[in-house]
Simulated scan of single mutants.
Amino acid sequence: MAKRTVAEQPGTEGGTGRRQPCPCGSGKRYKACHGAAGGAANVIVSRPFAGLAAECELVALREFVPSATAKLSLRSGDRVVTLATVLPMAAAAMVRSDGQAFVGLQVQTRSGDVSRDLARAVEWAQQAEPGASLPAVGPEDAPEGTVPARLQDLVDPDALLDAELYDDFSWWMPDDVEPTGDVALSLERANAAIMPTRRLDAEGVHSAYWVDAGEKAHVRWVRPDPEEQLLAALARLSARGELALDADSRYAGSFRAHGLLVPVWDVDREKHAREWEQPAAAMGHRLEEVLTSLDSEPLDAAERRAREGLRGRQITVR
């Protein structure tokens, strides 16, 4: 499914020549990437969900949303596959006893391409028997001499994710099944560690979440903008004193995840998550306005200093 053999690549209609860019999106030529021996295992793809309309939401669900599911818009196959943040015992995929298939996002990466590993789990979930579980996906799962499928090969690239958030992980089990053994222990631990999380629902605000981390609450917003442009826009707002969401918040910094930048604000825990929707919408309008102006109005000296300060407050999530 969605695989091409190495031998088919050169000269086949619609195929990828060995000197052409690899279809995985790494930026390397095919012969030095997935076309090389062990290429699928060794290539690091820094932006694995590029080209998908759901890219920002995929990053949010993988990195910090604790309990959520979303149905995938697959191009083929009779079985519905549901994307999930976390599965029992951090499995890569499972098919419940009632036949519902799930693929986990928050799993340990075993290759350099999260999209490739996720696609392999999707393919397994489409064919596995009820009650089966896939502990992990590794590079060895791809047949030798093939270009492994990536998520971009399997789903509608224009489809968005309609994620449903939960306060616990009870959705792991069918309604008429009681968890036992390791699954019950995993469920208990997962429920104990969950952080209250709410999506911010406002015009112009996408893939932004309020998270109660205990001592602090945060707003985390996965942005689709190129990193340097977004950083410049944030710097301009910082120089203007307009980088906070409101008087009860402060800009904490940002982290890089899967090729995208995620700004983070510390916010007042006493306020309800809904109270941050309009401040986030206002921030979105300010950012769009500044992003539009950057080409015609380069950063001045004060804004460049602000940019360097913001750059020092970035971390990279791997």
Results as ranks from 00 to 15, higher is better:
residue 4 R to S: 10
residue 5 T to M: 06
residue 6 V to L: 15
residue 8 E to H: 05
residue 12 T to M: 12
residue 14 G to E: 00
residue 14 G to I: 00
residue 16 T to I: 05
residue 16 T to W: 09
residue 16 T to C: 01
residue 17 G to W: 02
residue 26 S to E: 01
residue 27 G to Y: 05
residue 29 R to W: 02
residue 33 C to N: 02
residue 35 G to L: 10
residue 37 A to R: 13
residue 40 A to S: 06
residue 41 A to C: 02
residue 43 V to E: 14
residue 43 V to D: 02
residue 43 V to R: 08
residue 44 I to M: 10
residue 45 V to N: 09
residue 46 S to F: 02
residue 47 R to F: 00
residue 47 R to G: 02
residue 47 R to Y: 00
residue 51 G to V: 04
residue 53 A to Y: 00
residue 56 C to D: 00
residue 57 E to G: 00
residue 58 L to P: 08
residue 60 A to R: 01
residue 61 L to A: 06
residue 62 R to P: 04
residue 68 A to E: 02
residue 71 K to N: 07
residue 75 R to V: 07
residue 76 S to L: 05
residue 90 A to P: 00
residue 91 A to K: 06
residue 91 A to P: 13
residue 95 V to W: 07
residue 96 R to H: 12
residue 96 R to W: 12
residue 98 D to N: 12
residue 111 S to P: 06
residue 117 D to K: 05
residue 120 R to F: 03
residue 120 R to C: 01
residue 130 P to Y: 08
residue 132 A to G: 05
residue 138 G to T: 15
residue 141 D to S: 11
residue 142 A to R: 06
residue 144 E to S: 13
residue 145 G to S: 12
residue 146 T to M: 15
residue 147 V to A: 12
residue 148 P to G: 06
residue 150 R to Y: 02
residue 150 R to V: 05
residue 152 Q to Y: 06
residue 154 L to F: 03
residue 156 D to H: 03
residue 157 P to V: 00
residue 160 L to A: 06
residue 165 L to M: 09
residue 166 Y to L: 09
residue 167 D to T: 14
residue 170 S to H: 13
residue 171 W to P: 01
residue 172 W to E: 11
residue 172 W to R: 12
residue 173 M to W: 14
residue 176 D to W: 14
residue 176 D to T: 02
residue 177 V to Y: 06
residue 177 V to M: 13
residue 180 T to Q: 01
residue 183 V to S: 01
residue 184 A to S: 12
residue 187 L to F: 08
residue 191 N to L: 04
residue 191 N to V: 11
residue 192 A to T: 09
residue 198 R to P: 00
residue 198 R to L: 02
residue 198 R to Y: 08
residue 198 R to V: 14
residue 201 D to H: 14
residue 202 A to D: 05
residue 203 E to N: 10
residue 203 E to K: 10
residue 208 A to F: 11
residue 209 Y to H: 15
residue 212 D to T: 08
residue 213 A to T: 13
residue 214 G to S: 10
residue 217 A to M: 13
residue 218 H to I: 04
residue 220 R to T: 09
residue 221 W to L: 04
residue 222 V to F: 06
residue 224 P to T: 11
residue 228 E to W: 01
residue 233 A to L: 02
residue 236 R to E: 04
residue 236 R to V: 05
residue 238 S to E: 15
residue 239 A to T: 04
residue 241 G to T: 10
residue 242 E to R: 12
residue 244 A to P: 07
residue 245 L to W: 08
residue 247 A to P: 04
residue 249 S to N: 02
residue 249 S to C: 10
residue 251 Y to K: 12
residue 252 A to Y: 12
residue 255 F to D: 03
residue 256 R to L: 10
residue 258 H to W: 03
residue 260 L to E: 01
residue 261 L to Q: 11
residue 270 E to A: 08
residue 277 E to I: 12
residue 283 M to K: 04
residue 289 E to Y: 13
residue 290 V to Q: 04
residue 291 L to E: 03
residue 295 D to T: 13
residue 297 E to Q: 15
residue 299 L to K: 14
residue 300 D to I: 08
residue 301 A to H: 04
residue 305 R to S: 15
residue 305 R to K: 15
residue 308 E to C: 04
residue 308 E to S: 09
residue 311 R to V: 13
residue 311 R to I: 08
residue 313 R to P: 00
residue 316 T to Q: 07
residue 317 V to N: 07
residue 317 V to C: 03
